[in-house]
Amino acid sequence: MRHGFAVRVGPVGFRIGSEWQAPVAALARLYEGYPAPPDGVADFTVRLEAARPWRRWARPAITIRGDFTLPDTAPLPLAQGLLAAEMGMNLQMALGARRWLLLHASCVERDGRALLMSGHSGAGKSTLSALLGERGWRLLGDEFALLDPATGLVHPFPRPVSLKNESIAVMAADISHERFGPLIAGTPKGDIRHLRPAADAIARMAEPARPALLLFPQFGQTEDLRPVGPVESFVRLTQASTNYVALGETGYAALTALAQGIPAIGVDYPDTASALRLVEALWAEAPR
C-alpha cells in the first residue's frame, strides 16, 4: 500500500495500509505517543482500499479490508477515513483475537483493580470510562475488555475513545484540543470524535488489572441500582462477547469465573454527574 502506519495498543500490534495519505496522517496524529509493534511485527493488518480503482479520485470511497473482513460492508467517504481505520481495527479484534475473551465493555482501573462497564451502544459506557479516565482512574479501554482466560486479569486496550454526539462537547470542555481527533460528522452513529487517553493510560498499557466490579450502566432513566445475579451477568456478557463461541470451553471457564467472582450491578442514571457519583459510591463498597 502507498501509505502505512503501525501502532501497538496494549498487547496487540496493528498495521494500517491506505491508498490515501489523509487517513494515515490522521492516525499518526491521534496515536501520538503510542509505541510501535514490538520488532515491527503486527498481529493484524487493516487495509483502506478504494471501493473501485477510479474511486481513489472520483468521489473517493474507502472499503475496509484486512486479515478479517465482513462481507457487504458499505464503503465510507474519504472524509471518514479515520473512522474506517478504527472500524477496521475493531473488526480484526472482534473476528480474529483468540488469546483473550473479548468483552464489549469499557474498563478503568484504580489501585490495581478493574471496573468493567458493559451495555448496549448508547448506554454511556464510553463516555463514563473517558470521564473516569480524567478523574483519578486509569483507562484500560472504552470498547473492548481483554479477559485473559489463564489469569482472570483484564489487559488494557487503550485505543482512543470514540466519543459520540453530546459527549463530544462534555469532554472537550475540560481537555486540551491536542488530544482530540478531527470531528467526523454524518456517520451512521451521528458525530464522532476520538479522544486520545491520558498519558498514564498509554504509558501503562502493558499492566493488566484484576476485575473487581461489573456495572451495566443505562442512560436516560431515573436513578436506580439493581443487583445482577451471576447467571444474568454471565448471559449478558456472552451477548457482549465477540468471541465467546469461538473460544469454546476456555471462554466458558473464563466467563463463569468472572461472573461468579465479582459483584454486578445495573445502574440507571439520568445524567453523567449522578453516574460518576454512583460509580464512586459502588466502588467504595465493592469487596476487596
Binding site: 447467571v231 454471565f234 448471559v235 463461541v245 469454546g248 470451553e249 466458558y252 463463569t256
Partner: peptide, 9 residues
C-alpha cells in the same frame, strides 16, 4: 444453572 455441553460446544 449454566451448563457447558462439551460434545456440542
Amino acid at each position: 444453572t449454566i451448563l457447558y455441553h462439551r460434545p456440542s460446544g
